[in-house]
């Protein structure tokens, strides 16, 4: 197991190297002047030029690149041009927000997705099954920004139950966190819940058809017990993979959701960084985020291997 883990971790290194090179090339290919973005509206050309000089943006690209990699190997990801704070600090400030929101969304996804999927499988071909699957289908077809807008119009503007946006940290005020995070979490979760429900149902059906379940049922074991003990345990294996995918989808989805609900998470940070040509922030922030995503995937692989003794990773 340790060897597998090491090999998987080692394989992440070239991926991250390519990611960092791609990021550097891409962000510097984007036209537009970061100094103009930082200066904002109605700055004079003198002011823009001063910013450019102060931030070292008048240096040739090659020397910026060498500088960046030089610092990277010393563990320094530089400073955000826009925020003035170190990239690592800015990322670490935002990460808990996105993690908390994703965790909330993940809980919603798991509850709705697993319950819907299991119930549909047990009631296969009944109206319950059909309604559940139609709902799941609508869930995966609903763009999350549209769902978010509809919820803002309904729950924040019309009914005034929830705030329109903003964020309160859980540690500051758990109820405030719940109020500000619920709509974003639902808009993130519904699509994934639909996905999970469909997969859970089909996996469960496959497992339920297998011989040993039929045997167990034939032996007269009550079917609920069978489901819980055998079917679900076996179905968890493929579902684990899906959860890994869901986690990376949550990070990707946070880009839109955080922008829509004004949540200061990693998605908003990186989107603003790209739009404002905040080179160090994009480079460093994307590197950290992709590294985390790769780690999540490795963790999922390891869980998978632990759950299913048949799986042997040979690095393919």
């Amino acid at each position: 197991m340790g060897a597998i883990l090491l090999r998987r971790l080692a394989s992440a290194v070239p991926i991250l190297a390519i990611v960092s090179i791609l990021t550097f090339g891409m962000i510097h290919l984007i036209p537009g002047d970061p100094a103009a973005a930082i200066a904002g509206l109605s700055a004079t050309p003198e002011q823009i030029a001063n910013i450019r000089r102060d931030l070292g943006l008048d240096q040739p690209l090659m020397s910026q690149l060498i500088h960046w990699y030089g610092n990277l190997f010393q563990g320094d990801l530089g400073r955000s041009l826009l925020l003035g704070q170190p990239v690592v600090e800015a990322t670490m400030q935002r990460l808990p927000v996105t993690v908390a929101l994703s965790a909330y969304a993940l809980v919603i996804t798991l509850v709705i997705g697993l319950v819907t999927g299991i119930v549909a499988a047990l009631r296969q071909n009944t109206w319950i099954d059909q309604v559940a699957m139609i709902l799941a289908m609508i869930g995966i077809s609903l763009p999350n920004f549209y769902l978010g807008l509809l919820m803002i119009i309904l729950f924040a503007v019309q009914l005034r139950w929830l705030p329109t946006g903003g964020y309160v940290a859980f540690t500051d005020d758990p109820l405030g966190w719940l109020a500000t995070s619920t709509m974003p979490a639902i808009s993130l979760a519904l699509l994934l819940a639909g996905l999970l429900a469909r997969i859970t149902r089909s996996t469960m059906l496959e497992v339920l058809r297998q011989d040993y379940i039929r045997t167990a049922r034939a032996k007269g074991l009550p079917s609920r017990k069978v489901v819980v003990k055998h079917a679900l345990a076996n179905a968890m294996i493929p579902i684990t993979t899906v959860i890994g995918i869901i986690v990376s989808l949550l990070i990707s989805g946070s880009v839109v959701t955080e922008t829509l609900f004004s949540i200061p998470g990693i998605g908003q940070l990186l989107t603003q960084a790209v739009l404002n040509r905040d080179y160090p922030m994009v480079q460093g922030g994307l590197l950290i985020t992709t590294a985390l995503l790769v780690l999540v995937n490795i963790a999922v692989d390891v869980c998978y291997a632990l759950l299913d003794p048949r799986v042997r990773y040979d690095g393919a």
């Binding site: 390519i18 891409m26 790209v274 739009l275 992709t290 995503l293």
Partner: peptide, 22 residues
């Protein structure tokens, strides 16, 4: 596949934003 994995390691929307920006 390494190149492929690297491209897939980016959050999709962010990659799309960056590429359209370029």
């Amino acid at each position: 596949m390494r190149f492929n994995d690297a491209l897939m390691a980016f959050p999709a929307v962010l990659l799309a934003i960056a590429v359209t920006a370029v």
